[in-house]
Design a protein around this nucleic acid. Sequence first.
DNA 1: AATGCGGGGCA
DNA 2: TGCCCAGCATT
Length: 361
Amino acid sequence: MKRAGKAFFTENLLIWNSEINTRNMPWKGEKDPYRIWLSEIILQQTRVEQGWPYYERFIKAYPTVNHLARASDDEVFRHWQGLGYYNRCRNMLAAARTISKDYQGQFPHTYESILALKGVGAYTAAAIASFAYGLPHAVVDGNVYRVLARYFGIQTPTDTTEGKKEFTLLAGELLDKTQSAAYNQAIMDFGAVVCKPQQPACSSCPLSTQCLAYQTGRVEQLPLKTKKIMIRQRFFYYIILIYNKQVYIRKRKEKDIWQNLHEFILLEQPCPVTQAELLASEGYRAALPGVSFKVEGLSAPYKQQLTHQTIIAQFLTLRGKGRAPALEGYQLVPQSMLNDYAFPKTITSYLEKSALGLTLF
DNA sequence: AATGCGGGGCA
DNA sequence: TGCCCAGCATT
């Protein structure tokens, strides 16, 4: 691929990194592949500021990959609670156990063997390979797409097969193979600090004289993306059925959002319904056949915006009468034990706001 | 090639 | 509100 200014780009990016870049993060300069891997998993599609405290907590709770591999699923999910994209947590655990068993706790040393780990894709494998072992693999993440699309004026959408191929090839050509760790760290820091998504610091950018987007007034338009996602609305009605300071919960197993997190008795409806309609619904009769109770109240709607759907949740508190029935798929747990289970943000928000554990029991 | 998967921060 | 974030797995 013939493009102007490649040598200028790499040279001046590295100068910026050594002379101007002051960005600091707990995992920066880290050589322990376990710690690098952990940070990269946490940071997938996640802002540094959001992932930072999670990283600190995970390192403290699990100092080595063997500690993590030995931990129970539920305990690790509790540490992950609130971070989102929960399959990352499941894959992370699977990878930790692979490393602990198949590799005797020694992190794999080649790009291909790192890439084979669960939850590790091209980006994460390149990051670990370069940061931990100095291997010559260029990272391609959201920062890299943005920096390269602007500097080289590339109009190929980044969310296409062609785009991924084109940007990956270019990134590999730009990499300084004698210092791949420094180069990879530099381009991501540069994208985060200078060539930001909004309000990039072009006036102080050392690459602006050769930046095609800057020179042609297209900085705000690049990089390009094609797909626009359809956002679906879902209406969740959670029944909080209480018997003597105990409440029914279950772990979400189905292939859907919040897999492996816990929830109360869920009645999902295709459209908004009133309390009376809910109690007369078919879903209610199926979930709670013949249960006798007193209605405590229906909460206000809790709205949560996910990437592909909007969850509108309401919580209906019922105080059961008589003996607590066994409900298929649900377990009855004391209110005081709720902190031992991982819940989605919508539910923890409700629990905090309603002070369920303080007043209702 | 297209889709699904969280949660938070920002203009 | 819409966009983006140290992406990946699945279909």
